[in-house]
Write a protein that binds this DNA or RNA. Sequence first.
DNA 1: TCAAAATCAGTAATTATTATCAAATTTATC
DNA 2: GATAAATTTGATAATAATTACTGATTTTGA
Lengths: 129, 129
Amino acid sequence: MNYSRQRQAIMDFLCDRKDHPTADTVYRNLRKTIPSISLGTVYRNLNLLAEHGSIRRVRGIDGSEHFDADTTDHQHFICRCCGIVEDILLPERQMSEIIRQEAQKGFAGIIETSDFYFLGVCCSCYKKQ
Amino acid sequence: MNYSRQRQAIMDFLCDRKDHPTADTVYRNLRKTIPSISLGTVYRNLNLLAEHGSIRRVRGIDGSEHFDADTTDHQHFICRCCGIVEDILLPERQMSEIIRQEAQKGFAGIIETSDFYFLGVCCSCYKKQ
DNA sequence: TCAAAATCAGTAATTATTATCAAATTTATC
DNA sequence: GATAAATTTGATAATAATTACTGATTTTGA
């Protein structure tokens, strides 16, 4: 996959962020370094990168779309108070693979990947209450 | 919760369907029996029913929003070919609860619920290939 | 170096969803 | 059952997110 200046900047930005920005957040931040960048370019590249498997789509609490450059096996937690999307790891390595195999039992189709969301109250919101 | 004619019809329609209709599908079908129903009414009631916990939101492959009147513990499978959303059950009862507890270990926030998606190719699409 | 391919910025169009509000319906009270 | 209060509706307008389009620019590869 080719990397234009804009595509590279989008990828770099995502890699630097631990949270999971939306297309609009990527756009607003990149304008600081590439003022001419357009929102269409951001959307186009995020979609290309996601199709290519370089980044992951993550669904926010309100259905909003977030992006994650970390494609290693991990799950997501969403806070129902502030909507923050955090990474969460199952304690055993390969656990998601085992769950996938369990789900496959007795299911007629073919399961290729899985996507787990955990919902609740994040540490920060819990303290505030 | 009160049930107007329209709200009841929306709930009934969802209960009758094994698939997971979108707001637009609900709307188009209900117009057959209630021609005057408006799309706004469908959205308003789907949101109310979801907030009330009577129905569940399910995210489709393209981020589209689907609704499910089955609120019992089960997971969803999404076909990457046709986009169909199917129910899928983990073989052991309470397995999702165990996974939730595992995820809670070492996580600072509070996990209340979980939402598992499995992605791949459905039985029907697999046969066609 | 230069032509072909890919990508861009800017804008228009599309889609999904929510907000608004007067009219209609439903509920609760007598 | 009559009727006032509360809720919900249908219709429309507004908003937000995303995609499509197009001519210009950049990148790639021979």
